[in-house]
Structures are given as C-alpha cells and as structure tokens.
Design a protein around this nucleic acid. Sequence first.
DNA 1: ACAATACTTAGGCATTGACCTAAGTATTGA
DNA 2: TCAATACTTAGGTCAATGCCTAAGTATTGT
Lengths: 115, 115
Amino acid sequence: MTNYSESLDSLFQALADPTRRTVIERLSLGPASVSELAEPFDMALPSFLQHLKVLEQCGLVTSQKVGRVRTYQLVPEALNLMRHWLQNQQTVWTRRLDQLDSYLLELAKQEKQNE
Amino acid sequence: MTNYSESLDSLFQALADPTRRTVIERLSLGPASVSELAEPFDMALPSFLQHLKVLEQCGLVTSQKVGRVRTYQLVPEALNLMRHWLQNQQTVWTRRLDQLDSYLLELAKQEKQNE
DNA sequence: ACAATACTTAGGCATTGACCTAAGTATTGA
DNA sequence: TCAATACTTAGGTCAATGCCTAAGTATTGT
C-alpha cells in the first residue's frame, strides 16, 4: 500500500477540481461510460480523459473496457481515508475548545467567589 | 459569500499538501506564531508563509499580529463544507448499493422460485 | 470490406504551485 | 540608539496541471 500521507494528497487533490467532483456525483447514480460522463462538459475529450485518469489513479473510481466502451464506477470505500482525517481533526479541535470553555467557566466561577 | 463550489475547490486544494495538513494538525493543539509553526519544516520562511496564506485564504485559519509576532489559530467550522460534501456522497453511494443489494437479493429469490 | 463509433496517444502551450535568495519593514531588548 | 528578532515583499526557477488539436487504434453496424 502507498503512504498514508501521499494517499491523502492525491485524494484531496483529485476532489479540488469541480469537473472531477461533478463526475463523482454523477457516478453516485450508477456506472457510466466515458462519453456519457463527458457529455455535460464543454471540453475536448482528451482533456476530460485526464480527469478520469486522476480519479482512477487516486482510487476513487475503477473502470473496465468491454468492446470499445469503457465503463467507470465508484469505489465506495475510497472516501474513508479523507473522512477519517477530517473527523479526527474536528474531534481534536472540538475537544480542545470544550476544555477551553470549561477552563473559562471555572475561571469565571472563581472570580465570582472572590467578589 | 463565495460560491459553494469554489469554496470546496480551495478547501480541498489547501488540504492536498502535507505541509499544510501538518500545520492544521499542529494548530489543533492551540494557536501558534509563524516561527513556531515553521520550526519543524526544513523550508525557507517565505516559502512556508505561502502555505499559511493558502490556509488563511480558504478560511481554515485566521491570524492577528501583535507587535512583531503573528499568531495563527484554527477556524473550527471551516471543515464543515467538505465534511458535508463527503458525507453526502457516501450516503448516496451507500443507498444506491443497498438498493442494488436488495435488487440482487430479490432476483435471486425469484430465480429460486423458478427452479 | 469499410464507415462510423468510442476511445487513446502524442505533443504543445499557458497558468499555477512550490520552492528559492535577497532585500526590505516594523518591534523590541540592551 | 542600535542590534537582534519576527516577519514581509519582490522576483526568479522549475515542475505539475488543465486545456487544446491532430492523428492514432480497436470495435461494431451495414
């Protein structure tokens, strides 16, 4: 398996582009071929293909080719790494802020006693 | 307020860099000055400052300068947009996969009846 | 067989991103 | 006051990204 940090790099990078996020959203509805995916975008096909390549390389989607048609689909577990990092961050922040809160509360209480 | 999609762009983009993610992790522990944040990195200060600028521009952190020291801190709510997008995606995927599951289950049941 | 379809590869060009050094500016401690 | 400290600005290089056109290759319908 690749480095944890590098995986996060490429996942965040992949989703930093609106075209690629839209592709992901479209694939939520089910698998689709290259041309189906490309259709809504006003972009040359080779340019669009690069986006699909980015999504596939970071593991968010997979594809197989049958005949002359390549079909893409989501890899549902692929978001987990990012979700966990975000979840983790927010947990830590919140805990720290809670501690700060109770500290300030405690401080206020003591000040009151000293009145 | 800025566009929803553009905000996601800049948030994902900001977190696509390991240096910037490490800064965020460090700031989870509490506010810190530029030089405190820069210290672990083997990087010229101006280069590092650019990272801080990116984090501030996308709203993940804020800073104030007192005397000659600039102090950075997290903006706890800043991750929400991303978390919601991810949450949403995963919800949709999962629901679709569940439906597929029950469809396949149903199919199998009917095949069994036709035996 | 051969034209149409569905990608694929190759190569080019402009912008952005991540780094650097060098030279500022603004505070602060001695 | 003047040197040290803590950034800040300016500008320059190099690689990666996002787009393009032109020219492939492999399948499939007629």
